[in-house]
Amino acid sequence: MEKEFNTFKNVIRLPHKYAAGPTYTKFYNGLKESKILGTRCPSCAVTFVPARSFCPKCMKNLDTWVEVAQEGEVQTWTYAGKDFFGIPGKAPVVIVLVKLDGTEGSFLHLIGGINLESADTVKKALRKGTRVKAVWNEEKKGHMLDIKYFAPLSKKR
């Protein structure tokens, strides 16, 4: 339908301070030292990454810390080619779920180090099972993006 009447444009801004709590604080401190930390459930023996304070299945509090592998396998990925208001980072980005070696579930992050020009160029470099490795930023802030991205390993091991 054609727009007939006036509209009112405005931006709502809200400031936030999120409490990381002890578990995420320790996880972020690990990132500062280029380590990816997980917690292991003593009951079901699953290792969660990022580290969690409790096991969502057994509801046990977790305090067994392990440094996990920085390599893993691509489970699934998608290509976001278009910018939208407030997108963290800048398009194009490839979002990926990586199963880090020795862990359960998938680690959500970005793919880099490949040609991101289009979904087709990404497709050539990425598929389920592609081995990838964490690439770190020089400067660490204790932030999820201290890991710059995961890059495909040049050849299979």
Binding site: A19, P22, T23, S53
Partner: peptide, 8 residues
């Protein structure tokens, strides 16, 4: 309660 995250 900044000693815990929101889910906690």
């Amino acid at each position: 309660r900044f000693d815990v995250s929101y889910p906690e």
